[in-house]
Amino acid sequence: MAGSAKRIIVAALLVSAFASATFAQETQAPPPPATPEAAPAGQSGAAAPAPSPNAPPSAATPAPSTEALPPKRMSWSFDGPFGVYDRASLQRGFQVYKEVCAACHALSHVALRNLGERGGPEFSLEQVSAIAAAYKVPADPDEMGKTVDANGMPLMRAATPADYFPAPYPNEKATRAAMNGALPPDLSLIVKNREGHEDYVYSILTGFGQRPPANEKLAPGMNYNPYFPRHQIAMPPPLTMGSVTYSDGTPNTVEQEAHDVVTFLTWAAEPKMEERKRMGFNVMAFLIGFTALLYLAYRRVWHGHHDVGAPGEGQG
C-alpha cells in the first residue's frame, strides 16, 4: 500500500506545483498584448515588441514599470459550479452596451434572438422583436439589383430577431478612420479573450480617473488606466455616474454599470454557461454513482483472487 500511495502523492504534488506555477500567471498581470488598442494605425504592419519592463533606461530617471496591475478580485453571481447569471443584471448590462458601448464596439457573434433565449437576459418575444426592429441592417438588393439609394447611401431595412447585432462600422478601415486610428475590439468574446476575464474587463472599466505618476508621460490621445498593459489605453472612460438611467431604479454608479455590462458581456461570450453547469452536475452525479457501482462490481468479480492490483493493495 505505502509504495503506490507514496508515488501517487509525489506525482500529484509535482502536478499541482506545475499547475499552480503555470496557472498562477492568471492572477498576475496579463501579458501585454501587442494590440492596436494602444497603438494608432500610423505604424506600419509589424507590431513592435513590448519593451521589457527590466530594460536599462537611457536617461537618468528610472524607467517606470508599466506592467498592468492585477485585476480587482470581484465576486460574480455566475462564479462557481452552481453560479447562474443574474437576469436583471443581464438586462441592465444590455442597456449599457446598447447605449454606451455599441457606438464603437461590435457584438457580431450575438444574434438579436439570443436576447430571448433561455440562460440569457430572457427578454420576452415582444421585447426582442421591438429591440430588433429598432436596429437597421443592410437590405437585400432591390428589383433593379441596386444596394444603394439615390444618394449613394446603402439600402437598409429593419432588423429581425434572426439578424446579428449590426456593427457600428462596416469594416476595419472605416472603424479606424472614425476612431483616430484605434480599433475597438468586437466584444462578443472579450471576456474569454483576455487574461483575468471578467475581473479584467471590470477593472479596466472602473480603473480610469487616476492621475498618472510623474515618470509616465501620457501620449497624445491616450488615457491613463493602470489595469491596462503599458497603462495607456486609446479608449476614453466610457462609463460615468448616470451614463444610463436604469428603468428598475438601480443606482447608476460607475461600479454598477460596469458590473452589469461585464455580466452581459460574460453571457455574450458564454451563452451556454448555465446549461453547461446544469448538465455538468447531472453528469458528475451519474458518474460518481456509476463509478461506485463499478467499484462494487469490480470487488465482487475479484473477490477471493487476492487482487494485488486493487486500489490500496500491492507494493507499488
Partner: peptide
C-alpha cells in the same frame, strides 16, 4: 443484481 444494475446504468 449488482452486475445487472451496473450494466443497466452503463
Amino acid at each position: 443484481f449488482l452486475f445487472i444494475a451496473t450494466a443497466a446504468a452503463g
